[in-house]
Nucleic acid binder design. Structure first.
Lengths: 140, 140
DNA sequence: TAAGTTGTTGTAAAAACTTGCAATAAGGAT
DNA sequence: ATCCTTATTGCAAGTTTTTACAACAACTTA
């Protein structure tokens, strides 16, 4: 749980505060294999920070996403899930079975630059979830 | 409203049915300038199909998306919105003001082929919403 | 044109998510 | 150490989205 302490300076430098609730949520995400739904995060983080409430989880996740410490991504059902930022990658989710693979960000890099050029928008760096049919389900 | 009747054969051919509720929802989407939230669709479609309920709107939209008649996309707040399929394009949404522009699908075409090659997934053709900062908000 | 099959809908209730606001507590200043 | 400011939380209530299931009605067949 102390591992989350290393984020405290980052928060303070930007005028925010480190709290037990944020520690717990960061800790859960740090040790998650994959992205988690708010409900899953709530369930786990509550063990580390008793008294934690659901609204706080939702607000904290949105906050952490705003300051780019965590990254939101969409599940195949359209719901938001979260994972730690860094190790930038994207997902391809199977429309049939829901299985997913990661896509290296480098594959999208040139597209992002192209989009910036053609649209005038800057800092395009969002996580993207693509949908397709995986090799297994193609066989059926 | 009769314009929605042209979808009836498509539905029947696949074992589904055309209903007043589906007519109303398709009609609303056909005449929408942009993508709409389930709540907006409910509000408008209810005028054409009295008795229409919210669960039906949600189910119908999911159904229409499944059979690729309409296309889901994510608003900047992470909520699902819907629009008629066809005229394939993607969106870039401004993280600050929420303003958005369309991106032609042709810009993504080669990326999609590349993803299919590297991942083994097929039929990757999902709508994608990118997030960035628009020219206006860059000025601030 | 009537009857049967089964895809669809409405109802009711639950689950997921959001909002406003007063109370709390993190971290800078004294 | 203690006080102050204000970011952050919990509470309570609201809104949105989902689910289960019985009733219904669209289409097929005869």
């Amino acid at each position: 749980m102390t591992c989350a302490l290393e984020y405290a300076p980052q928060l303070r430098a930007r005028g925010y505060r480190m709290t037990p609730q944020r520690m717990a949520i960061l800790h859960v995400l740090r040790h998650a294999e994959t992205h988690l739904s708010p409900a899953e995060i709530y369930k786990k983080a509550r063990l580390e920070a008793p008294g934690l409430t659901e609204p706080t989880v939702y607000r904290t996740l949105e906050f952490l996403a705003d300051i780019a410490l965590v990254r939101p991504s969409f599940s195949s059902s359209g719901h938001l899930t979260y994972e730690m930022a860094g190790n930038d990658h994207h997902h391809i989710v199977c429309r049939d079975c829901g299985g997913e693979v990661e896509v290296e960000h480098t594959l999208l890099e040139s597209l992002y630059r192209l989009l910036e050029t053609t649209s005038g928008y800057r800092s395009i760096n969002s996580h993207v979830t693509f949908f397709g049919v995986c090799p297994n389900c193609q066989a059926k």
